[in-house]
Structure formats: structure tokens, C-alpha cells
């Protein structure tokens, strides 16, 4: 089975995001004064094979923990879907 993981990586809430702060200020300057906060992150699409959904989930989590994110400063969420192979 072929899967696609859509992975969103952001800095942890406890870690200041200077890019997000700059974007927030720019939005305020554009009169979007209702904007409270922006956090800038990364988006990855990973297409891979795995026998079943559980194995696919485990693999995404392992790839994120070991390599795709730095757990010292980053956190992530992801969506997983089976794609036609």
C-alpha cells in the first residue's frame, strides 16, 4: 500500500518564533490589527509504502522523531492518507 503523509512542522510554543513575530507585525501594519499571533513552519509531503495504516503511522512518527524535526525546538502534526499506487 502507498501512503502520503502531510507533515506540518512548527517551533514549540515555548520557543520564540522571530519570523512569526515579524509577520504578525507586518499584518498589523497592513491594518489586520485583529491578528494575535503567527507562527511560521515547514510543510513536507512524504510518499511511501507500508503494509497497513498502523505501520504507516509508526514510520511517519519515527521519521519525524529521528530526522524530519528537531524535538529540542520543534513539534509537528501530520495527516496520513492512502494514495493509489
Amino acid at each position: 500500500m502507498t501512503w502520503q503523509a502531510l507533515i506540518y512542522v512548527t517551533l514549540k510554543g515555548s520557543v520564540l518564533d522571530p519570523q512569526g513575530t515579524a509577520v504578525t507585525k507586518a499584518l498589523h501594519a497592513m491594518q489586520y490589527t485583529n491578528v494575535h499571533d503567527v507562527r511560521v513552519g515547514k510543510y513536507l509531503e512524504v510518499v511511501f509504502d507500508a503494509d497497513n495504516e498502523q505501520a504507516a503511522n509508526e514510520q511517519v512518527q519515527a521519521m519525524c522523531a529521528k530526522f524530519l524535526t528537531n524535538p529540542v525546538i520543534e513539534t509537528y502534526t501530520y495527516r496520513l492518507a492512502e494514495v493509489a499506487s
Partner: peptide, 10 residues
């Protein structure tokens, strides 16, 4: 230990 982030000043 730790990590290196983007400079605060960007």
C-alpha cells in the same frame, strides 16, 4: 545538548 535557532533579528 540544545539547538541553534534562527537569529532573533532574522
Amino acid at each position: 545538548p540544545g539547538a541553534l535557532r534562527q537569529n532573533e533579528s532574522l
